[in-house]
């Protein structure tokens, strides 16, 4: 790591209040779980949609991200 060219600003700023973060955190966590589920596991171990099209479309990403595939 090189020396920062300008002073650190974050430590001067107040922490963002938890009540501002909480709704975003809940939404983001739910959406992230959903997205990762569809890329990582849909139509492998479990299926929301019938068939294998979701599995096959994200097949390479699933393998190369190291998820259990088949």
């Amino acid at each position: 790591m090189t020396v920062a060219t300008r002073p650190a600003v974050s430590s001067d700023l107040p922490a963002i209040p938890m009540r501002d973060i909480a709704p975003w955190a809940i939404l983001a966590a739910l959406l992230a779980v959903l997205l990762v589920y569809f890329v990582g596991a849909e139509q492998g171990a479990w299926s929301v949609f019938a068939g294998t099209d979701v599995h096959e479309f994200v097949h390479d990403a699933r393998h190369l991200l190291g998820f259990p595939c088949h």
């Binding site: 963002i16 955190a25 983001a28 992230a32 997205l35 990762v36 890329v39 990582g40 991200l65």
Partner: peptide, 22 residues
């Protein structure tokens, strides 16, 4: 397929990183 899969996971990761940072 590879790109959509990676982008979905990447965007999710970026969002979680932003929340964790906050």
């Amino acid at each position: 397929g590879l790109f959509v899969g990676l982008a979905a996971v990447g965007v999710a990761l970026g969002g979680i990183l932003a929340i964790s940072f906050a």
